[in-house]
C-alpha cells in the first residue's frame, strides 16, 4: 500500500539537470546476461527480443527506416519490443495516444504481417527484402488507407504508430536535438540518450 505523504519539496527550481536512474535504458538479455541498455546498444549487441520475433524485428526496422531514415541504427525494433514487454502503464510508445486497445504487441505483429502480405502481393517479396524506393508507393497508400491488399489494424494507425516510434528515436533525443541545433533545455535531464 502506497501512501503519498506530502509534496516532496525537492522540486528543482532551476534547470538543475537532475539525473534519473536508468531513464532511457531497458532491461535486455545479451548472451543470457541481464543488462540495462539503450535501444541502439541493444541492437548493436544483438540483445534478445521479448515480444517480437526476429522476422518481426527485421520487418519493423525496414519499415521504420523507410519512414524515418536513421531509425534502424537507433534501435527501433528493440525500443518497441522493450516497451511492449512493459506493463501498459509504463509503456513509452505513442500507440498509447492513438487509442489502440491493448495488448499492443498484437497490434504491431498484425500490422507487420499485413505489411508483409501487401508487399508480397504488390512488390513480389517480403517487405524487408525490397528497397525503400520500391516500397514508396505501398507506404504512401497507408495513411490514406488505400493500400491493398490489407488485412490487419487500420493501415493509417499502424503507419502513424511506427512513424512516431521512429521519430522518437531519430528526432526526440538529446543527440538529435544537438544535431538539429535545437537546444534541449531540460528541467530534469534524461540520464541517457535512448
Amino acid at each position: 500500500m502506497q501512501i503519498e505523504q506530502a509534496f516532496d519539496g525537492l522540486a528543482p527550481n532551476r534547470r538543475t539537470l537532475l539525473k534519473s536512474a536508468a531513464f532511457g535504458l531497458f532491461a535486455f538479455k545479451v548472451a543470457g546476461a541481464d543488462m540495462l541498455l539503450s535501444p541502439a546498444e541493444a541492437r548493436a549487441r544483438r540483445a534478445a527480443l521479448s515480444k517480437l520475433s526476429a522476422e518481426d524485428a527485421a520487418r519493423l526496422e525496414a519499415f521504420g527506416e523507410a519512414l524515418v531514415p536513421g531509425a534502424r541504427a537507433a534501435g527501433l525494433a528493440h525500443f518497441v519490443d522493450a516497451n511492449l514487454a512493459r506493463p501498459h502503464g509504463e509503456s513509452l510508445l505513442t500507440v498509447r495516444y492513438l487509442d489502440v486497445l491493448p495488448p499492443h504487441h498484437t497490434f504491431y505483429k498484425a500490422g507487420l504481417a499485413a505489411l508483409d502480405a501487401a508487399s508480397r502481393a504488390v512488390l513480389g517479396g517480403p517487405f524487408e527484402g525490397v528497397s525503400a524506393a520500391a516500397a514508396r508507393p505501398l507506404i504512401a497508400a497507408m495513411l490514406p488507407g488505400t493500400i491493398a491488399p490489407w488485412t490487419g489494424p487500420p493501415p493509417a494507425l499502424f503507419y502513424l504508430a511506427v512513424r512516431s516510434d521512429a521519430a522518437d528515436l531519430v528526432y526526440g533525443t538529446r543527440a538529435a536535438f544537438a544535431r538539429m541545433q535545437v537546444p534541449y533545455m531540460a528541467h530534469i535531464e534524461p540520464a541517457t540518450d535512448w
Binding site: 509534496f7 516532496d8 525537492l10 522540486a11 528543482p12 537532475l18 534519473s20 531513464f23 522518437d168 526526440g172 534541449y184 533545455m185 531540460a186 528541467h187 530534469i188 535531464e189 534524461p190
Partner: peptide, 9 residues
C-alpha cells in the same frame, strides 16, 4: 512527485 517529471516527450 515533481522530481519525477523528466523533460522528454
Amino acid at each position: 512527485k515533481s522530481a519525477d517529471l523528466i523533460s522528454s516527450s
